[in-house]
Design a protein around this nucleic acid. Sequence first.
RNA 1: UGGGCUAUGGCCAAGCGGUUAAGGCAUCGGACUCUGAAUCCGAGACCGAGAGUUCGAAUCUCUCUAGCCCUGCCA
Length: 544
Amino acid sequence: MEIESNFIKTIMEEDLASGKVEEIVTRFPPEPNAYLHIGHARAIITNFELAKQFGGRTNLRFDDTNPVKEDSSFVEAIKEDIQWLGYEPANIFFGSDYFEITYDYAIKLIKKNLAYVCDLSQEEMRDYRGTLTEPGKDSPYRNRTVEENLQLFEEMKAGKFGDGEKTLRAKIDMSHPNMNMRDPVLYRIIHIYHHNTGDKWCIYPMYDFAHPLQDAIEGVTHSLCSLEYDDHRILYDWVVEKCETPHVPHQYEFGRLNITNTIMSKRYLKQLVDKNLVRGYDDPRMPTLTGLRRRGYTKDAIKDFVLGTGLSRINSTVSSEMLENSVRNDLNYKVKRVNAVLEPLKVVITNYPEDQVEWLDAPYNKDNEAMGNRKVAFGRNLFIEREDFVEEKPNKKWKRLALGIEVRLMYAYFITCNEVKYDDFGNIVELQCTYDPKTKSGSGFDERKPNGTIHFVEATTSKRATFNLFEPLMIDSDSKRDLEDRLNPNSWSELEGFVEKAIEDTHPLERFQFIRKGYFSTDYDSSSEGLVFNRICELKSSFK
RNA sequence: UGGGCUAUGGCCAAGCGGUUAAGGCAUCGGACUCUGAAUCCGAGACCGAGAGUUCGAAUCUCUCUAGCCCUGCCA
């Protein structure tokens, strides 16, 4: 899998060809305050794959410059997700590793008379900033002398002031049409414990100041980020230029990747977890990487999906069917295809001996013989899928069982339904069928065609199993309505059924195709006492 | 006239002055089938609109329209 062609790859090729850069260095800079989701996968894959394709390298950098919001507990989870995707960062850094040097650069700006300490309160600063259509006005503190600024900044660092009392601001242009250039704050005062630097600092650099410097220090050549930072690029370049950093990184923006029926924002995901609307960040319904993993999605499927959606300067919303298509393609030839009956209906083969079970040969995957064979049990008592039977064949397209109709049980025999048994409420509880020994699978029997092929399981040898079926967590995706009103009440349903004996020793994250029912993955909670499978996605179907 | 960005089939997305305008997903036909799966064939756009430059434009220019982002001491 390779990145085919996109505007960033083109830029890199040109930069390499022109000698603007000698190698490609990228970085993935998550803020350690949330779990990674499928949207982040685009950034991760793009950064790592592009660098890899050009023989470059990619750093993982935790952007922890705001101790109020961040928490080291996310650090390990993020590392794990990246590793799961198959990437190994050239280096793992923290934004906080650069606090000292970032501070030095701030001093440099002050000395160049390009930064000043400002006493304006947050509200005052907002007033002074102007609006989108009106220019702002200079802060009354804008003309402090270099010496005074140096002194005050030193005192800020020393802890002489309280939170918010003073800021260090860049001296740019209060009437700039781009709001980011109206003397942006470079440093603010926050007296709080930092997960990495403890109480050493009480002044912390803002993203717009720290990020370009971090990139420059690491020698990042192409700093990729999402579209909303487009407006910040001018500031990014200003910082790099005025600080005269040894390396000159450049920022390029691309659109975010959204998926239909999927909510990606940190805020929503957190709410879902905090309000117990899901069973945690690794709930199989969550779009988090940890959730997708538990659901059974493979890293190759995710890469295929991300690469398949391409990259552009548009915030795209891709159909979730595309993601499903990627897993199906990935698993089709790779996993065992076995029988599972999710909603069992009892079938008695009346002309088959009591207390007899025979074991028939069946391939694990007829399109991949290397996967070998297993034995499928057949006997007098079977289960088939409830939905595979109707009393009267509705139309010629019905390719399943019905009264008086003969179907093939996959890898076994043809059976014909002769009688239906009901309970007191009129529900179908059992089918009385007969089988034809001449039609044994593999015998080459071709005297007549069955009315389709269905799957089944032998009652006495199969294993009980729980099947978790999922639907999108959210319906009504565009609405601004309250989160809880948008939840899909049917996002998780559990069925109790059976799987054939061959897979009784399955282990978590082993994937299967349950014939005609979809791709499933063994859940973490599965055990020999209670098998549990998560449906990753259904099989495609042209059944209408 | 605040600034920035975007506009190629239903959804993504190649294309960078001369192509029959790639490809994937979805959709619709048809073949095949011991999974209504897979596989295999086949089907759809004149490139937001208008004007211009040019022998020739999705690709260049202009105007217009629509959408997204920006007034955190968040990232």
